[in-house]
């Protein structure tokens, strides 16, 4: 490849260009093709031939690797489309379930219902309300922890602390980097464990209650929020922060007035998106006991009451649609 490039350069003449080949060969294919374009522009008529572009662009390489990985996965799991053809028992469940997709139950499908049970639709409404309540509670905890950790784990904060310490005290600078690394590790630990695994851990350690379910959801959500917030804070332009810092503002002031206002639109949009995810998580946590939508999906399914399952599925669907619309509308206003 290297040799071919060199030949090409020499064919096109100009000694000065040949001198660049060493530089080019050290670069990745993408950068060098960008340079080809540039030189093509500046020396019109001496454009490089497209046929000589590297065979595997990064994108093709990635696509190839994805295909290989996918192939390996199906072979390893030993599954093929044939396994999806339903046997007789499966066909019954399959048609039984999907035939009710457009006719969700409006009332309980069996006569055996506790006398004081609420009508199905009211029960679905109440489960949906509880799903929202769990999600909002979890999100409020996650938001507080996520903002604090996100700030503490941002590069801007580390650099700010380091700069405040100045060149005078190496000890302080090391301490701020140490603090940064510790916070990043905490964030990573929190979000690498799935909320349902946290729920199982709480189940084993404390017994699962409504509050521990909410905390189980809040921990990984706080980690994810903190990670994304810290990236957003680091991506905001630092001009205002620098000006404030040079005018003598304290670290907290620089953060609150120099960095935060610019990062807030992105952060709120992301928070709403995570709220949508929290709704799903809080529904699923119902499988482990709390009376959110997941619990009733499980109960109705186990009784083969497919129509009721669809009622609860549609309730969850409506919740998500509302939040999706809300966050979309907000994002549009932030962008404007």
């Amino acid at each position: 490849m290297k040799k071919r490039r060199k030949n090409r350069e020499q064919e096109t003449g100009k000694d000065s260009e040949a001198g660049r080949t060493t530089l080019r060969s050290t670069m990745g294919p993408a950068e060098s093709s960008a340079m080809d374009e540039q030189s093509g522009k500046s020396h019109a008529g001496r454009q490089t031939r497209p046929g000589l572009q590297p065979l595997l662009s990064p994108r093709r390489l990635v696509l190839l690797m994805i295909s290989a990985a996918g192939l390996w996965a199906y072979l390893y799991l030993g599954i093929g489309p044939g396994d999806l053809l339903p046997g007789t028992g499966q066909a019954k469940a399959l048609t039984g379930f999907f035939s009710r997709a457009l006719s969700p139950a409006l009332d309980y499908e069996s006569g055996f219902v506790a006398r004081d049970a609420a009508p199905l639709l009211l029960n679905a409404l109440d489960a949906a309300r509880r799903t929202v309540v769990f999600a909002a509670a979890a999100m409020s905890l996650a938001l507080v922890a996520g903002v604090v950790l996100g700030f503490a784990g941002s590069k801007s904060w580390r650099d700010l602390q380091g700069r405040m310490a100045g060149g005078a005290s190496r000890h302080l600078r090391i301490r701020s980097s140490g603090f940064y690394v510790a916070v990043r590790m905490l964030i990573t630990m929190m979000r690498s464990v799935h909320e349902l695994i946290w729920a199982v851990l709480f189940l084993a350690a404390l017994g699962l209650s409504n509050l521990s379910a909410v905390i189980a959801i809040a921990i990984p959500y706080a980690g994810t929020l903190a990670k994304v917030f810290s990236e957003m804070i680091d991506e905001t332009p630092r001009d205002a922060a620098r000006a404030l810092s040079e005018a003598g503002a304290s670290g907290g002031q620089v953060f609150a007035f120099g960095l935060l206002p610019r990062a807030i639109p992105d952060m709120s949009a992301y928070t709403l998106y995570r709220f949508e995810c929290a709704l799903r998580s809080s529904a699923v946590v119902g499988f482990f006991g709390p009376e959110t939508l997941g619990k009733f999906i499980k109960l109705s399914w186990n009784e083969n009451h497919y129509g009721e399952v669809w009622t609860y599925l549609y309730a969850l669907f409506l919740l998500i649609v509302v939040v999706d619309w809300w966050s979309g509308a907000l994002r549009k206003r932030f962008a404007a």
Partner: peptide, 17 residues
């Protein structure tokens, strides 16, 4: 996308085992 993976998986296990 409104229905979480976990719920889909629960339903599909009920169908396909």
């Amino acid at each position: 996308r409104a229905i979480p993976e976990y719920v889909w998986a629960f339903l599909f296990i009920g169908i396909w085992g």
